[in-house]
Design a protein around this nucleic acid. Structure first.
Lengths: 189, 189
DNA sequence: ACCTGAACACCGTTCAAGT
DNA sequence: ACCTGAACACCGTTCAAGT
């Protein structure tokens, strides 16, 4: 019975912003581009999201949720596998994900130049799987410290790799593997 | 004898862009803001820099040079100090620097959303001190791998810290120290 | 040789007016 | 209740015109 039914939705808007981010970068996530993708004029977006910042924060939240699901799966126990082997698998999965969706990963961890972040709740969901295996590796009282170190390394490495910061030759796959193994070894000791 | 002497210079322009970046963020580095700081109209800037991208790349180069000088100093041998202790000092110095100049650091390592980077030459200068101590720690043939791991951890950690990504409590200083020590231990083994 | 105002094609955002 | 065109204050960049 509404005078005019909604011609788009918040979900469609966030999805359009998300694909724009991944395909063309944060600069391409303009209200004009998003509006065009959902078939509406830019001012109409403000009926569904507060402003561009809130839209990008919503994208960050979705990206964090997906990352959490991915980690949950990657970390799943395989018969007879120790915490070290499971963390190595999780790190490799994270790197593959970062290679496929570099801008989403940057958005989740560093806000991509803006000050937007996922909500604490979503961050907690995304972090849980890693925290559990970290507790196995380093003990419950050092789980947070270990998870932070592993995340810092993996995110830092992939962020630099995607930003083409490794420009002195050498085997990048090797550096990632050696680094994560050294860190896991050091944290378990 | 020039018809009109230059009222500004490339150096002054880059310096203005740099302070704008650190004080207000990359979005504030507009041609209008930079021009106002050097006392000129925006179109005049194009006589000194190709475009905004080239200006930001020049800022990245200066930031990389400064970081290299800082690392060179931090890594300097103290009597009887091993490679592990020197790397720990370098990492702590890097973190202090990242706390003071977070946006410059982000620009050097990840391009800050744009695709700008320091030149390879400047990156090589900035990386040399770390590579030398890494060779001491892990042996010459593993120096690059070790330096990459240490950089990835330190940059990732500080980037997350500055982006307020550590939101589950705990001692962040402790996490940094434990992480870098674990990594150094693992790389030396 | 450098600087300038005017212009162009864009932004994000607001708001009164339509349906 | 949602969508729209028009408007406002901004961008980066180009260019002919000034000195």
């Amino acid at each position: 019975m509404s005078p005019t039914p909604a011609r788009t939705s918040r979900d469609a808007i966030v999805a359009a912003a998300r694909s724009l981010l991944e395909e063309e970068g944060l600069d391409a996530v303009t209200m004009a581009n998003v509006a065009a993708r959902v078939g509406v004029r830019p001012p109409s977006l403000y009926k569904h999201v507060r402003d561009r910042g809130a839209l990008i924060a919503a994208v960050a939240d979705e990206a964090a949720r997906d990352l959490g699901l991915l980690m949950d799966e990657a970390v799943g126990a395989v018969s007879g596998e120790g915490a070290d082997a499971r963390l190595l698998r999780a790190a490799v999965a994270f790197r593959v994900h970062a290679g496929r969706s570099p801008r989403s990963v940057a958005l989740v961890f560093a806000g991509l130049g803006g000050n937007l972040q996922p909500s604490v709740e979503m961050a907690a969901v995304a972090a849980r799987p890693l925290l559990e295996v970290s507790a196995e590796l380093a003990g419950p009282d050092r789980a947070l410290v270990a998870a932070r170190a592993l995340t810092a390394f993996a995110y830092g490495f992939c962020s630099m790799e995607q930003g083409r910061a490794f420009r002195f030759g050498g085997d990048v796959d090797d550096a990632f593997r050696a680094g994560i193994e050294a860190l896991i070894r050091g944290l378990a000791a």
